[in-house]
Amino acid sequence: MAGDQENDVQFASALAADLRATIGRLKRRLQEQSGASDLTSSQITVLVRLDKEGPATASALARAEKMRPQSMSAILASLEEAGMVVGSADPHDGRKTLISLTKLCKRWIDVGRAARQDWLTRAVREHLSPAEQKRVAAALPLIKRLAEK
């Protein structure tokens, strides 16, 4: 009985290591397709959050990303310098500044997203048989459940 539990733990550990490495490689391949290599992962994370959730204050972004406000300020300053974000007065509290994506950044995100989607669609069609595509589709809900934990 104890041997079965040990085997289960070893199997889960090996599966987790392989899954992490594989998803990491896929993430890097997708980033290569979008031209996001000039940005740090922290900068990309902030841009993705603003894209999904809309404008936010620097302090709200820092809390959401679990980082010090000073670190977030440095990230935002570099993104503002690159023309990716802009600050404007909060219409509900003029003392606060809301950070939002610029039109240039929104276009960059859309172009990058389309490039990643096109690359992945081609890769799936060219490298996976229809039966393999169905197997990946069947595993996707399990991977999504892991990602939500």
Rank of each mutant, 00 (worst) to 15 (best):
I44A: 14
L79T: 10
V86F: 04
S34I: 11
G112P: 01
R28P: 00
S73L: 09
S59W: 03
I99S: 03
E65G: 02
R116D: 10
V111M: 09
M72E: 09
L101K: 01
R113G: 00
A60R: 12
G112Q: 11
D90I: 07
L79K: 08
A74E: 10
L39N: 02
E53I: 09
K103A: 11
A82D: 15
R68K: 15
P69K: 05
A74K: 15
S88W: 00
R116C: 11
E65K: 12
R116N: 07
G112R: 12
P69C: 00
A58K: 08
V46A: 15
W108V: 12
A36C: 04
E32F: 06
G54Q: 11
E80P: 02
R28Q: 09
S88A: 12
S71F: 09
L101F: 01
K66P: 00
S100M: 10
C105L: 12
L61P: 05
I44Y: 01
L30M: 11
G35H: 04
K66R: 13
T45S: 12
M72W: 07
P55I: 09
E65P: 00
G87N: 06
M67W: 05
S88K: 08
A114S: 14
R68A: 13
M67H: 06
I75R: 14
I99K: 07
R29N: 10
M67T: 15
K96I: 02
R28F: 07
L26A: 11
L26P: 02
P55E: 06
G54Y: 06
S34K: 07
S34N: 06
A56W: 01
A74S: 11
L47K: 10
R63I: 04
G94Y: 05
K27I: 10
S41E: 12
V46D: 12
C105P: 13
S37I: 03
L76K: 06
I44N: 07
M72P: 04
Q117W: 04
L101A: 03
A74M: 12
S100F: 03
S78A: 08
M84N: 07
A64S: 14
T40C: 04
S41M: 08
G87M: 07
R68I: 06
A74H: 13
L30S: 10
D93N: 15
I44P: 03
V85S: 06
K66I: 03
R107C: 01
A58Y: 05
T97I: 14
R28C: 00
V111Y: 09
A89K: 14
A77F: 09
D51S: 13
A56V: 07
E65F: 04
E32M: 04
L50F: 02
R95E: 04
C105F: 10
Q43Y: 02
E32P: 00
D93E: 04
S37G: 08
E53R: 15
Q33G: 02
